[in-house]
Design a protein around this nucleic acid. Sequence first.
DNA 1: AAATACCTTCCAGCCGACTAGAAGGTTTGT
DNA 2: ACAAACCTTCTAGTCGGCTGGAAGGTATTT
Lengths: 148, 148
Amino acid sequence: MVYDRGMKIGELANKTGLTTKTIRYYEDIGVLPEPGRHANGYRSYHPSVIDRVGFIKDAQASGLSLIEIQVILELRDEGESTCGHTVRLLESHLEDVQTQIIDLHRTKTLLEKMIVKAKALDPADCLNPNRCQTISATHLQMEGTGTE
Amino acid sequence: MVYDRGMKIGELANKTGLTTKTIRYYEDIGVLPEPGRHANGYRSYHPSVIDRVGFIKDAQASGLSLIEIQVILELRDEGESTCGHTVRLLESHLEDVQTQIIDLHRTKTLLEKMIVKAKALDPADCLNPNRCQTISATHLQMEGTGTE
DNA sequence: AAATACCTTCCAGCCGACTAGAAGGTTTGT
DNA sequence: ACAAACCTTCTAGTCGGCTGGAAGGTATTT
């Protein structure tokens, strides 16, 4: 059963660039399966786990959360016809990404406007709190004291 | 000193769309100044705070963190020439946003490829774990068992 | 006088992805 | 023989931006 050729956690950490802490954490939340154990209780990893970690990293880099990744991997581990689920998950995530891109573009535009506006100000005005409109995107005059 | 015409917190909440909890939280972290108090100890807000909240919301919508906003407002409250600093902050944040947009486009492309790939697969193959390549972005074959 | 709708403070928890440290067991090297 | 470098489990903390609840004070209405 326990074939002692399996990597120990430190070795896996070295090969994947994760820390041992992170590996155990991934195991806790289920994105990495519970590994076998050596006779002494140490975790024993099959080389294929390296690929699995690679997948996790790729998926993470694509913006999937560990929870989403966990769902995909779980389904896959069950040998289910994962593709349908996965495609749906991916598509839903793609939508999120598209929304995020749009939002970021809005943000970018806003920032650019703010910067242009700020730069156009006479520096002297900056010392006058009643005139500093640097950031005021729309209606803000940055006036006054807050409270009395 | 305490002029009782000031808004109470609930009124400010109504006018700004923040909750009273959030307003107190903003006070705690310093993006809103400590307000005056009514005779009974209730917070008493000057109307200008509404604008300040508006500024905070705009800045937040631009992706600035409350900490960054706090820095700007603090400087401004001190009568500093905030504009230069603010512009620098905004520009640095703009760079971040641009990077994020690029990253997200990469992600989007990756996701689209993954989806296309997944859809192109013969559904039957999905039942074969050794063939299900749905998600494998680059090098992943999604093969095998994890560990023994 | 009581109900209600405010207000006050403080403490606790949520999300996600870790990271740190304590307290111990094991293995390797000299 | 003993230190160092590994491994184990467990608990708890970090960041940011809130949100919730408890336990109490106050103001208004009935």
